[in-house]
Simulated assay, not measured.
Amino acid sequence: MSASDPQHAGPVEHADRGDRAASADHVDHLDHVDHVDHVDIRKDLDATVRARRELGEEYDSALVDSFLEKVEQRIDDTVDRRVRRHLAEQRMAAARGGRRPKQDDSWAERYGFALLTLVLAIPLSAIAGGLAGMSGLVACWIGVVGVNAAQAVRLHPELLPGRGADRE
């Protein structure tokens, strides 16, 4: 497995590309590897059964031992591969500061609340300014900023010191 071969690139190489598609490619590659292992084990079992028919019962234990060694090696390889993937994912999460990228959020989900509050702030400003003057206008905008700040902290707890790691 070479690092330059994208088909055999591990999670760390995919992290360098920085996109979710790379992670999906990696998972698809692992599913393919697991499927190939399953096909190979089936072929080995068929070959072992054919060899047993040809050689007879006196070679049963040797054939079974040989087959079990192959299965054990494949299980070890699969476990090692999954442990390496899990460790790489943990390192990537630690490098991001424990935050998960929110690539699934649409533009409206990210900015919709802020735009709505700004749109509503226009008539609220007119009413507050007309009824209470400058102090009403200041109070209105402190409320708009406060509501947006609360929403930002709710969506991104890491904005407040000491809260990001505890919440996820």
Results as ranks from 00 to 15, higher is better:
1 M>A: 14
2 S>R: 14
4 S>A: 13
4 S>M: 15
7 Q>A: 12
7 Q>F: 13
8 H>I: 04
10 G>A: 06
11 P>I: 10
17 R>C: 14
17 R>H: 15
19 D>G: 08
19 D>N: 14
21 A>Y: 10
22 A>W: 02
25 D>L: 03
27 V>S: 08
28 D>A: 12
30 L>H: 13
32 H>W: 00
33 V>M: 00
34 D>P: 00
35 H>W: 04
38 H>C: 09
40 D>S: 06
41 I>A: 07
46 D>P: 00
47 A>Q: 08
49 V>R: 05
50 R>S: 12
52 R>N: 06
52 R>I: 01
56 G>Q: 05
56 G>N: 06
56 G>E: 06
58 E>I: 10
61 S>E: 13
62 A>K: 04
63 L>C: 04
63 L>A: 06
63 L>N: 04
64 V>D: 08
65 D>S: 10
66 S>G: 13
67 F>M: 08
68 L>T: 07
71 V>L: 12
77 D>G: 14
77 D>P: 00
77 D>K: 08
79 V>Q: 07
82 R>Y: 12
85 R>C: 12
85 R>G: 10
86 H>C: 13
86 H>Q: 15
87 L>Q: 07
93 A>W: 08
95 A>I: 00
95 A>K: 09
97 G>P: 02
98 G>F: 04
98 G>H: 06
101 P>T: 05
102 K>E: 12
103 Q>G: 14
103 Q>V: 14
107 W>N: 04
107 W>G: 03
111 Y>E: 09
115 L>W: 08
118 L>V: 05
121 A>M: 08
124 L>W: 11
127 I>K: 11
134 M>K: 06
136 G>K: 00
137 L>H: 02
137 L>F: 11
140 C>D: 07
142 I>W: 09
142 I>T: 15
143 G>E: 06
144 V>Y: 04
144 V>M: 11
146 G>W: 12
147 V>P: 01
147 V>E: 04
148 N>I: 10
152 A>S: 10
154 R>E: 07
159 L>Q: 03
161 P>M: 09
